[in-house]
Simulated scan of single mutants.
Amino acid sequence: MVALQIRDVPDDVRRALSDRAAARGQSLQSYLLALVTAEARRSTNLAALERFADRQDGSQLSRAEAIEAADHARVEREAQRDEAANAP
């Protein structure tokens, strides 16, 4: 592992970060490591999403249509489950 150093951090920024770390029961070091790690993961996830942005093999449903389709599928599953439970 490598060590990172940030210079010229204003006192109020350092104090705010220290307060947030303390509120979570963490050291400033562990709090900042968690922030940097989350940011690295987020940028990796965004890069993956961008690679698939132009693909046409996925769903072309709008958000509302996808919700409606999921609701319909849930109702059908529940009806099938109820039929199976009531079958002799």
Rank of each mutant, 00 (worst) to 15 (best):
S18E: 06
V13A: 05
P88I: 04
R7P: 02
F52A: 11
D54Q: 04
A16M: 11
Y31M: 04
R20C: 10
P10C: 00
V9Y: 09
R7Q: 08
A16Y: 04
V36S: 09
L28Q: 08
R41A: 10
R7T: 07
V9P: 01
Q60Y: 01
D82F: 02
S30H: 04
A47G: 09
L28I: 04
S62G: 05
L32V: 11
Q29T: 11
A23Y: 10
A85E: 07
E68T: 12
A3N: 12
D8S: 12
D71P: 01
S27F: 02
A23W: 06
R81N: 02
Q26S: 05
L4E: 15
E78L: 13
H72E: 14
D19G: 13
R15A: 11
E65G: 04
M1N: 11
A22P: 07
L4M: 14
V36N: 08
Q56M: 12
D82N: 10
A87G: 06
Q26Y: 04
E76H: 05
R42W: 03
S62L: 07
A53C: 02
R15Y: 11
R24V: 00
Q56I: 03
A22S: 11
L35R: 15
I6W: 13
L28K: 07
V9E: 02
D82L: 14
R74L: 15
R14H: 06
A38H: 09
A48E: 13
R74W: 08
G25S: 04
L32A: 15
A3D: 12
Q80S: 12
V75K: 11
R51H: 08
A64T: 14
S30E: 00
Q29M: 00
G25F: 07
R14C: 03
A38D: 13
H72R: 14
P10R: 06
Q29N: 15
L35Y: 04
A53L: 02
S43K: 05
A38K: 13
A53H: 05
G25E: 05
Q29L: 06
G25L: 04
D71Q: 14
S30I: 03
L32Q: 11
A73S: 08
D82I: 01
L46N: 01
A38F: 00
A87D: 01
E76C: 01
L61I: 08
E83G: 04
V36Y: 13
G25T: 06
D82K: 15
A3C: 01
R20E: 11
G25R: 00
A87R: 12
Q26M: 12
D71H: 07
A69R: 14
V75P: 02
V2I: 08
A34L: 10
V9L: 10
E65L: 07
S18G: 13
R55P: 02
R63M: 07
E76F: 09
A70K: 12
R7L: 06
A70V: 07
